[in-house]
């Protein structure tokens, strides 16, 4: 949570405050809500909190917000997309549908087991780009696989 806050708020003190607030909120919410996928839920709550923090005039008002939107009907997070064993059969084809750079990075990372820096050395992409190609490639794979299945 702290790391996520740092990514978006870019300030140590604000991130520490935000982490404490999210932690307290999460504790309250867990007493009232059924959370099916805790990690994904926590991630989305943290991100949403940061977004609100970025847009709010006075961050100290955050505790006044009575309800955020993370009820179970709102599970839009891609993490909730469950990939079944049978869908993995189409993985080979799905990878081919990815953009070249995503395909290349996924291949080097998952199949050739190269680290980010090694992939950056091989491909000439910046390490940050490598990370982002893998992340986006993974997200697109999920979408392709679930679409093919339905």
């Amino acid at each position: 949570m702290y790391g996520v806050c740092l990514k978006y708020l870019k300030n140590v003190q604000e991130s520490q405050d935000a982490t404490s607030l999210i932690f307290e909120k999460v504790m309250d919410d867990l007493l009232r809500m059924d959370v099916m996928n805790f990690k994904s839920w926590l991630y989305m709550v943290s991100k949403n909190h940061c977004l609100m923090q970025l847009r709010k005039k006075k961050p100290e008002k955050i505790e006044n917000i009575s309800e955020l939107e993370y009820k179970l009907e709102d599970n839009h997070d891609s993490e909730y997309v469950f990939i079944k064993e049978s869908q993995l059969k189409n993985l080979e084809e799905a990878i081919k549908k990815l953009k070249d750079e995503q395909q290349q990075c996924i291949d080097l990372f998952y199949l050739k087991e190269k680290t980010y820096d090694e992939i950056a050395g091989i491909t000439g992409y910046e390490t940050k780009k490598v990370k982002s190609y893998i992340q986006n490639g993974k997200r697109n794979l999920k979408i392709i696989l679930t679409e093919n299945h339905t």
Binding site: V4, K7, K39
Partner: peptide, 15 residues
């Protein structure tokens, strides 16, 4: 790479 939560957290600490 396997988790956006982890990925964002590392981005945060790296920055």
């Amino acid at each position: 790479a396997g988790d956006e939560f982890n990925s964002d957290a590392i981005d945060g600490f790296e920055s």
